[in-house]
Amino acid sequence: MSKRPEVEVPGVKSRPCYGSVQLQPRARLHLFIYQPDAQAQLQPLIESVDPSSCLQFEVAGTALAPALVDALQSAPLASAIYLAGDESFLWDMRNLVRGNGFTERQIAMLQPLNSARRVFCTHCYTLTEGVTHSPMVCSGCQRPLLVRDHFSRLHGAYVGVQINAEDPEDLPQEEPLS
């Protein structure tokens, strides 16, 4: 039917890659779920569907509006879901939607809004949001972490590992993440 929403980048095993998103032509209901700044990204898709078969939800923060919860529970089997926002939002929503019984192919993720990453510390398991540079400091254990391209779909996060455990003074230069 449609392309898988994400494919693997060759060589880097688990970094998700976001292709272009097309409307799923056979869907009876199109649900657009986005963060406040990401609606513009979805606009061309939204405009191409009949308003009577389209629902839009803006999600700020982590709380889901009861209307969205209802919509997910009552959406027909022939529904398509389109997600836009930053990368951790995309994966949190995807996991939530999957938990409601939607399949992989029903969910399309747009290009993340920015390059900020959520990082999962492999030492204390704390998640640090909005990381833009590597190395970074873990918000849980304060260890200096190197941000890897290894991505956990469950956490919507990249793995952070302590650099140079013997000599924490000897840190590599900070570089922006792409």
Binding site: M1, R26, A27, F102, T103, E104, R105, Q106
Partner: peptide
């Protein structure tokens, strides 16, 4: 299922 618009992976 296809006519009804079901996702293929269901």
């Amino acid at each position: 299922a296809r006519e009804l618009g079901w996702p293929e992976d269901a």
